[in-house]
């Protein structure tokens, strides 16, 4: 019996999302009175692997195969399923990111396991096994019961905290059974994206209004957008004044956006602007006027001058990203 977590690595390094997952596996294993095992595929230095132990992994199964470069779903699936079998895993957990979404369903079929994707908490109960996840794209929460003996979960990023738990992780190497048929796809090229994020596609939009006070004062906003991987937007007066290009104008007559998070700096919230952003999931506003209509639409607000708030915010975000 065990809980198995698959941790992805980025050029031999783990990220916060990996530690969250291991911590989740550890807490789930504790709930089930068993241990958390981690499987890691590809070249990761031992020192980096050991970090997983700090979040509760009692064993780390390292798999290296020189045919592996990039994510090959069939091969990765076979490896994880073989490790799951060897470790007698009852539950296999993945991150709910591109890689996890690719592998978890395949592994679930391999193990004949019911799957719950994008879960955001530990199970409500173990018998029956009930766990929570977002449904209808964030408009509701569903409690899903997994009836099969084995289970596969994908964990929504940032939904649990990575809690340190000093386990002394054993590292062992596993050689999987793989044939050429597992390598039917081949990664030809990897392109790192450096382009700016498109406004209408963006998950996060950083937007400025007249409160930015001039065409030459946008550097901090651009910097914040860069840090958050956000697109830049503006209000109509701003583009009419020529401070920013018209393509960035959001509102009734500009673009209609529906990002996950919309950050409004120095925007009073004229109704024509609100019309263009009302589909945003979360609106955060910074404005000098505490009675500005933007605060009616916002979930979080700061009353203050953007010229002073922005540099502090950039600094704090930069600090947070280092962790």
């Amino acid at each position: 019996m065990s809980v198995l977590a698959f941790t992805e690595n980025w050029d031999g390094k783990f990220k916060k999302i990996s530690f969250e997952l291991v911590s989740y596996a550890h807490q789930l294993a504790a709930q089930m009175n068993t241990n958390a095992v981690v499987v890691s595929i590809g070249n990761v230095p031992e020192e980096e692997l050991k970090k997983l132990g700090h979040y509760g992994a009692s064993k780390i199964v390292r798999v290296e195969d020189n045919r592996i470069s990039g994510l090959i779903n069939k091969a990765f699936t076979a490896i994880i399923a073989q490790v799951a079998e060897k470790e007698g895993a009852d539950v296999v957990v993945f991150s709910h990111n591109f890689t996890g979404k690719a592998l978890a369903p395949r592994v679930a079929v391999r193990l004949r396991a019911g799957m719950a994707s994008g879960v955001n908490a530990l199970p409500d109960s173990l018998d029956p096994f009930v766990v929570k996840k977002g449904v209808f794209t964030g408009k509701a929460i569903g409690h899903i019961t997994i009836k099969s003996a084995k289970k596969v979960l994908t964990l929504f990023p940032n939904s649990v905290e990575a809690i340190e738990a000093d386990e002394n992780a054993v590292i062992e190497t596993f050689t999987p059974q793989l044939s050429d048929a597992h390598f039917a796809t081949k990664v030809l090229e990897v392109k790192k994206v450096t382009d700016k994020v498109l406004l209408t596609d963006a998950e996060v939009v950083v937007s400025g209004g007249r409160g930015m006070k001039g065409a030459d004062k946008w550097a901090p906003l651009e910097e914040l957008a860069g840090l958050l991987g956000a697109a830049i937007a503006c209000t109509r007066p701003v583009s009419d004044e020529g401070w920013r290009p018209h393509g960035e104008h959001v509102g009734q007559t500009g673009k209609i956006v529906a990002p996950n998070v919309y950050l409004a700096f120095g925007i009073s919230g004229a109704i024509q602007h609100l019309g263009g952003i009302s589909a945003s999931k979360h609106i955060i506003a910074v404005n000098t006027d505490k009675d500005a209509p933007i605060f009616e639409a916002a979930e979080y607000g700061i009353v203050g001058d953007v010229q002073q708030v922005l540099p502090k915010l950039i600094e704090a975000v930069r600090e947070a990203k280092k962790q």
Binding site: A113, G142, I144, I146
Partner: peptide, 8 residues
């Protein structure tokens, strides 16, 4: 293998 039992 799975089923939704409740929503909120």
């Amino acid at each position: 293998l799975t089923g939704f039992t409740a929503f909120e």
